[in-house]
Computed example of a mutant assay.
Amino acid sequence: MTAPPAERRLRGFTGAGYDKQRGLLAQAAWFAALNVLFVKWWFPARWRPALLRAFGARVGERVLIRHRVRVHWPWKLTVGDDVWIGEGAWLVNLEPVTIEHDVCVSQEAVLCTGSHLRTSPTFEYDNAPIRLERGSWVAARALVLRGVTVGAGAVVGAGAVAHRDLPPGAVHTAGGSR
């Protein structure tokens, strides 16, 4: 038997437990830099890691970030060496996102650390960090949800949704895991 759906009372939402870790001025400055510079096709790819670092991200060497990539909070982002982040990828990092060395996040992939408690009438946050281990690949239009670790060398295939941890070397496609 299924429990009845929670009666939503969104007016009572408090956002309890979510720490942006920076004040309103830093948030506004990042959103301006993101939308005026970072996402633009004409902003040089080699400058994107430096801009992220200026806002508190830890970014390794030889990192390639294409245009239209969106990063919610750079100060909650750690990127290793030799990482590629494809055009239009979206890092919704309300909580920390760690991308280890030699990882590829392909075009329009989404890493989303945020969610809500479905049983909470006020729909409070249920956020958790994401970790992409060394050599993993999140393919085009794939989605990695909050709290997931993609193991070393594992693949989240194009269009797949990773809602639980993938062990090292696993391949998870839209049709399931192998």
Rank of each mutant, 00 (worst) to 15 (best):
L34Q: 11
V148I: 10
G12E: 15
H172C: 14
W42H: 08
K76W: 01
R68T: 09
G12M: 12
V103R: 08
A26S: 13
V103P: 11
A54I: 02
K40Q: 14
V69M: 01
V71H: 07
D82T: 02
W30Y: 00
K40V: 04
R11G: 15
A174D: 07
E100R: 12
W84L: 03
R164P: 04
Y125P: 14
P168F: 01
T98V: 14
A109Q: 03
L34G: 08
E133H: 10
I130C: 09
H101P: 13
S136F: 08
R68C: 11
V63C: 03
V156E: 05
V161S: 09
A158I: 07
A109N: 03
A152D: 00
L94Y: 13
A158Q: 11
Y18D: 15
H72A: 12
L111C: 09
W90L: 00
W47C: 10
V97C: 09
C104W: 08
L24Q: 14
L77Y: 01
L51A: 07
Q27H: 11
H116A: 15
E124Y: 04
L25A: 15
D19Y: 03
R22V: 14
T98Y: 02
T2S: 15
V105S: 10
A162I: 01
V83H: 00
E87N: 02
E61R: 12
P168Q: 03
V105A: 01
W137K: 15
E95Q: 13
G60R: 07
L52W: 05
P121L: 01
A89T: 04
Y125E: 00
A6E: 01
W47D: 07
A45P: 14
R9H: 11
T113L: 07
P49F: 08
A139F: 05
Y125D: 09
G23N: 04
G88D: 04
G176D: 06
N127H: 14
K20F: 08
R118K: 05
V71W: 01
N127G: 10
G15N: 01
A33P: 00
E100W: 00
G151L: 10
P4T: 11
F38A: 08
